[in-house]
Every structure is written in structure tokens, then in C-alpha cells.
């Protein structure tokens, strides 16, 4: 089953006098349960593609179906609901909220989903346990190592049981050991049936995926 299907995605950025075409007709299909790496040099459009796949941005033209739903024409608020329910983000620089403890950080998507405090706490503890951080619940992100922080971010990404996990250079700020741990967690999540999408320029990271999608000048070059 297709979890992601884009047809002729075009994204233009209006920079005053010049218009920049970041995506120039992207057709991409990703099946449920796939582990896909999106690769490309900087400026290739891979970040733009990730933002659109992650419903943080909308294409200028073209259609994007997520889980069978056309999301490319949705309003800001509708997209917020889609992000909350179907997408888990893992960022290069973790993007945890520094003044909240890690339990509260992981509860964040559940809060916006409208779950009660009790349910949130229960689910967040369970997920943090699965990434090996159950003894750090009350710690602030600043008290954790980079690898631990990224594990918190992964916990936050998957706590809502999303349709896809979208990771943007997830090992970019980590040493090789911690990076390896993170990739192992990704592989485990993949084995458990999650759809994983990693955006990276690191070939070693991309090699862990089932499939590598190369993007260059706003177009997909090699789709197999």
C-alpha cells in the first residue's frame, strides 16, 4: 500500500526579484513499511521535499497524497492535525524544549492530540522505556548527552504512532557510536513495521535503507 504518493510536485520560492524553483516535478511513491533514504547535495531540494512530505509546507503545484488523503491543498490547521496524527519528526539538532523535562517533551504531541495528563504520561513513559531512558524522565534535555537527546526526540516522534517517521540528518550532530545507536533504533522501528524516511547526505547512513532516492536540482534522479 502506498503511504506516500507525490505527483509533479513543484515548489517555487519568491525571493523578491528572482524566483527559485526548489522542486521541479517530483514524482515519488513510498510503500507502507519501507525504509527510504533521500540523498542529495545541499541546495538539491531535499530539505524542501522533506518539509512538504512532513506537511510543514505546501507545494506550489502538484498533488501529495499521504495515506490516501490529498494533503497538498489543506489549510494550516488541517495540516497541523495531520502532522500531529501521522508524522513523527526527528531533527538534526534534536529540537527539544530546553525548559521541559524529557517526559514532558515526549508528551508534547499527545498534549496537542488532546489526551489527558494521565494517558500522556503513561504512553510517554512506555515509549521512553523502549529507547532506554526510563531512568531519566525528570531530567532536562541539557543534562543529557547528544545520543540520549536524539533518543528522546525519537521517542517524541513515535509516541503518537505516526504513519511515517521523518528524520532529517538524524546523526549529523552525533559521534559515530551514538549515531550507530540511533540508526539501530531506526532499523528496529523499521522491523516493527514503521515507515522510515531519512534525509541525509551521508552515504553510510543511507546504506542502511531499503531504497535510496537521489535528488538533484529539484528532480529525482534515481528511483530504485
Amino acid at each position: 500500500m502506498e503511504i506516500i504518493k507525490t505527483i509533479g510536485l513543484i515548489k517555487d520560492y519568491d525571493l523578491g526579484k528572482v524566483k527559485v524553483r526548489a522542486l521541479n516535478g517530483v514524482d515519488l511513491t513510498i510503500e507502507t513499511g519501507e525504509f527510504v533514504a533521500i540523498m542529495g547535495p545541499s541546495g538539491s531540494g531535499k530539505s524542501t521535499l522533506m518539509h512538504i512530505i512532513g506537511c510543514l509546507d505546501s507545494p506550489t503545484e502538484g498533488d501529495y497524497y499521504l495515506d490516501g488523503t490529498l494533503v497538498s491543498k489543506m489549510s494550516r490547521n488541517e495540516l497541523a492535525a495531520i502532522r500531529n496524527a501521522k508524522i513523527g519528526f526527528v531533527f538534526q539538532s534534536f529540537h527539544l524544549l530546553p525548559h521541559l523535562n524529557i517526559l514532558k517533551n515526549v508528551e508534547l504531541p499527545l498534549m496537542y492530540a488532546g489526551l489527558s495528563g494521565k494517558q500522556r504520561s503513561l504512553k510517554a513513559r512506555e515509549i521512553l522505556d523502549s529507547v532506554g531512558l526510563s531512568d531519566r524522565l525528570k531530567h532536562k534535555p541539557g543534562e543529557l548527552s547528544g545520543g540520549q537527546r536524539q533518543r528522546v526526540a525519537i521517542a517524541r516522534a513515535i509516541v503518537n504512532k505516526p504513519s511515517i517517521v521523518l528524520a532529517d540528518e538524524p546523526t549529523g550532530n552525533l559521534d559515530s557510536t551514538s549515531g550507530g545507536d540511533i540508526l539501530e533504533i531506526f532499523e528496529r522501528l523499521h522491523r516493527q513495521g514503521n515507515t522510515m524516511i531519512i534525509v541525509t547526505h551521508d552515504a553510510a547512513v543511507a546504506a542502511r535503507a531499503d531504497r535510496i532516492v537521489q535528488i538533484h536540482d529539484g528532480r529525482i534522479e534515481d528511483g530504485d
Binding site: A80, A81, N84
Partner: peptide, 16 residues
């Protein structure tokens, strides 16, 4: 700004 970005990314609506 970043915190707001994170909140919006995980599903906060404008109203929230």
C-alpha cells in the same frame, strides 16, 4: 521562535 516551530511541527495549531 524555535520552540514555537517545534510545537507547530508536532501538531500545535495557530490557536494553541
Amino acid at each position: 521562535t524555535r520552540e514555537i516551530g517545534v510545537r507547530i511541527a508536532v501538531g500545535a495549531r495557530g490557536k494553541d
